[in-house]
């Protein structure tokens, strides 16, 4: 069973003669290994470029941080009230932002839908504005609104509102474009005006889609609202960054733990709600 006795030399040369294409060639080896070599060389170079060596010089502060994260002191002075108000504020920001975004998208969505807004220039204009709202990250909006209206949850609500307006309007307008034409024609045939057609022909069909998408965004906004505070836009993130700057690492660890529990709880809850909603639909 030894590898040496696999095939004899003349058998090998016979196979080489009859099936030359199955053996390795330098070119095949290059083609096989080149992507890996390039990736590896790139990784090594980029880590060097990003100064990977910094990990070696990080010792003192890291131990200080780790020590404080694990050892919690003076727990009676931690102002739990502010922490939990911060968490409530995060939820409130997500709720208000999603609500405003959905309400705005209700109008803008119709303006961007091909079958409702026949004027090309208006439709395209609205769509490009929406692209910009979507293209800029929510955190950037947060920073911009902090600059415009000052620190606090108002900036956070506006940031969520603006980025949701961009995304939800697009989704809503797609839902409106995929609508059943016959029902709309039925309402038009009764002699209803433009608004009447929208109210009785479109809204009943698209409202369930709108609501389910908004609920989904409520979930994802709750998650992103936790970090909006890092740029000063209110909520729990602001408490994290304040106490982090004040070197209160044990409190930061506690707050982060709370945030993680919140995130996992929201995940779990929304999964439950979705399952429940699907179950309802199946009846």
């Amino acid at each position: 069973m030894t590898a040496a006795a696999l095939v004899s030399a003349d058998q090998l040369s016979a196979v080489r003669a009859s099936h030359p294409d199955i053996f390795g060639t330098p070119w095949k080896a290059v083609k096989k290994w080149a992507p890996w070599v390039i990736a590896l060389v790139y990784l090594v170079w980029s880590l060097w470029f990003f100064e990977i060596g910094r990990f070696l010089n990080a010792s003192d502060r890291v131990w200080d941080l780790l020590y404080n994260v694990v050892v919690w002191r003076d727990m009676d002075t931690w102002q739990y009230g502010t922490i939990y108000i911060g968490i409530a504020q995060t939820l409130a920001m997500a709720f208000l932002g999603t609500l405003l975004g959905s309400m705005g998208a209700l109008f803008v969505g119709f303006l961007a839908a091909r079958n409702v807004m026949p004027v090309w220039i208006v439709r395209q204009g609205v769509r490009r504005v929406l692209d910009v709202l979507r293209g800029v990250d929510q955190l950037v909006w947060g920073l911009v609104f902090v600059r415009a209206v000052g620190l606090g949850p108002l900036a956070g609500v506006l940031a969520i509102f603006v980025s949701d307006l961009g995304t939800l309007s697009k989704l809503y307008s797609e839902a409106i474009e995929n609508i059943d034409r016959k029902q709309v024609e039925g309402v038009t045939a009764t002699g209803a005006g433009k608004l009447g057609v929208i109210r009785y022909g479109y809204i009943p069909q698209v409202l369930p889609v709108f609501i389910s998408q908004s609920l989904y965004f409520l979930e994802s906004n709750t998650r992103s609202a936790t970090i909006l505070g890092i740029v000063g836009a209110g909520g729990i993130g602001m408490i994290i960054i304040e106490r982090f700057r004040a070197s209160l690492y044990d409190q930061v660890a506690f707050v982060v733990l709370n945030v993680l529990v919140l995130i996992f709880a929201i995940d779990w809850l929304s999964k439950r709600v979705r399952l429940w909603a699907i179950g309802e639909n199946e009846h």
């Binding site: 409130a92 208000l96 415009a148 108002l154 209110g234």
Partner: peptide, 16 residues
């Protein structure tokens, strides 16, 4: 509750 907790009052919005 949300408006109360996040100080999202009409006059703040009107100012902002």
């Amino acid at each position: 509750l949300s408006m109360w907790i996040s100080n999202f009052t009409p006059e703040r919005l009107a100012n902002g």
